[in-house]
């Protein structure tokens, strides 16, 4: 059986479930604020406009933050530095991990051992500590934060891709291509890759959620965006001493990060259910009991 899950159909099927729809809606809402926000800012996000932690009112809908800048302007301007970085870093991490995982799983032998054991070293350090180690070397910068995210994702994605590759490599159509002596690179690209794209797709959606969390956490720790530019993670840390006077500069970014990550996670969950459905075969329910046992073996 040579099934090739079409990407568009898994995306689409996930978006049709309740979970997927709610997830997309939440992500879309926050993404719209993050991407369109900089165009809508009423005041300059870096101008000092009054007393620190001034309460809402007098033209400042959410009041002022810890040095007297407009909270709303900084909220609207503070998402643009998280989302694109999260997306690019996730794509790079998944791409790198898929490359190593597929090639290690398909080629096997010493190459497999060396690649996977090397990646295991990265897995032996808690994620955030790996990021801290990197940032401690060259100072805080978005580029380094992105690199840290790539290095965090690559080993885990490689494991998933390798496991899926090992399953796909046992299939008849791969053996067929091998019997025709197709070059290994071509087999990996045309036979293996389409058949590991399901798990990789789910993994990408999950990884995107983690990326947002890691980037926001590093910014919260003061290791990402440099002042005076606003950023949701950094805003939460800067303004938490003033929660008693004006909680909004903390509450709004906290809510935005929470909604964004929960939405992404809901969609990832829907996507994982949708791709699991594909694996059961076109007849779905009819073949499900038979396939269920076969998949575990």
């Amino acid at each position: 059986m040579k099934w090739r899950p079409s990407r568009s159909s898994a995306w689409f099927r996930a978006a049709r479930t309740t979970r997927g729809r709610v997830g997309l809606l939440l992500v879309g809402l926050v993404a719209a604020i993050a991407l369109l926000g900089p165009l809508l800012t009423p005041d300059s996000p870096t101008a000092l406009l009054g007393v620190p932690f001034a309460r809402p009112g007098s033209g400042h809908l959410l009041g002022l933050e810890y040095v007297g800048r407009d909270t709303l302007a900084r909220v609207l301007d503070g998402g643009i530095r998280i989302l694109p970085l999260a997306a690019i870093a996730t794509a790079a991490g998944v791409g790198l991990g898929a490359f190593f995982g597929i090639s290690a799983g398909y080629r096997g032998g010493a190459y497999d051992e060396i690649v996977m054991r090397t990646l295991d070293v990265l897995l032996a350090v808690p994620q955030i500590i790996l990021a801290l180690l990197l940032v401690s070397l060259a100072g805080a910068s978005p580029l380094l934060v992105g690199t840290a995210v790539v290095l965090i994702h690559a080993p885990q994605v490689a494991r998933v891709a390798r496991a899926a590759t090992l399953r796909a490599a046992r299939e008849d159509f791969v053996k067929y291509s091998q019997a025709l002596s197709d070059p290994p690179l071509r087999i990996m690209l045309t036979d293996v890759l389409p058949n590991v794209s399901g798990p990789l797709l789910v993994e990408s959606a999950l990884r995107l959620t983690y990326s947002i969390g890691i980037i926001a956490s590093l910014n919260f720790l003061g290791l990402g965006t440099r002042p005076p530019f606003p950023d949701w993670g950094a805003m939460i840390n800067e303004n938490r001493i003033g929660i008693g006077q004006n909680p909004w500069p903390v509450v709004v970014p906290v809510a935005l990060v929470a909604v964004l990550t929960i939405g992404a996670s809901l969609y990832a969950d829907a996507l994982s259910r949708a791709t699991a459905g594909i694996e059961l075969g076109a007849e779905g329910v009819l073949v499900a009991p038979v396939d269920e046992g076969g998949r575990d073996a």
Binding site: G213, I236, T261
Partner: peptide
Amino acid sequence: AVAAVPEFVVAIALIL
């Protein structure tokens, strides 16, 4: 939900 949200957001939400 809790698995998705970063720890510092949970922490700040609890503080709030």
